[in-house]
């Protein structure tokens, strides 16, 4: 077997005959040192690149991103607080304005009422004065009318008496008329 192999493929190994594997190449221990050597080189190189360059860099990037996110969140929180504050201020201003408006309305109402009351009182007083004046005038006119009626009655009575042929003295006629008008 061994001689055959060396005759067939003297160049490579006992595990390969005519270019194809004998059994499992994995169990060909001729190749193990080579594989193990290159594996260790590979692992050392990868470990070096990862531990010296890649992993710290990625860790830094991740930390930085975390920091950025935290900062942005904090900023957003701040802005939100500001917005809430602004809204409160706005609401307060609105409430103030409303209260002020209410005050102005109340004041104006009171003023108008006072003015109105004033005007009403004045008007009442004027009306009362005018009414009193009118009454006085009416009384005057009535008195005058009474006087006139008396005079007319006297004259008429005198005329009537004279027409009837009598001669009446003024004194008795006046007395009669006064008596009549009282009754």
């Amino acid at each position: 077997m061994a001689t055959e192999t060396t005759a067939g493929t003297a160049s490579t190994s006992t595990c390969v005959v005519d270019g194809s594997a004998v059994g499992m190449p994995q169990l060909c221990f001729d190749w193990w040192p080579n594989q193990i050597f290159w594996l260790i080189v590979t692992l050392v190189v990868i470990f070096f690149f990862l531990s010296r360059i890649a992993l710290p860099r990625i860790a830094a990037v991740l930390a930085e991103r975390q920091g950025t996110i935290t900062n942005d969140l904090a900023a957003a929180e701040d802005l939100k607080a500001k917005a809430v504050e602004a809204e409160e201020a706005y609401n307060k201003a609105l409430a103030d304005a409303r209260a002020q408006a209410q005050d102005i309305i109340n004041q104006t109402k009171a003023e108008i009422k006072a003015e109105l009351d004033d005007a009403t009182a004045k008007a009442d007083a004027e009306i009362a004065a005018k009414a009193a004046e009118g009454e006085k005038k009416i009384a005057e006119i009535r008195a005058n009318a009474m006087e006139s009626v008396k005079d007319v009655a006297k004259d008429t009575a005198k005329e009537l008496v004279s027409v009837m042929g009598g001669k009446a003295d003024a004194k008795s006629i006046t007395a009669a008329i006064n008596a009549r008008m009282k009754g």
Binding site: T12, V16, S20, A21, G23, M24
Partner: peptide
């Protein structure tokens, strides 16, 4: 030759 792919060669 399913195992030939595993041959180590220079």
């Amino acid at each position: 030759h399913p195992m030939d792919q595993f041959i180590v060669k220079p």
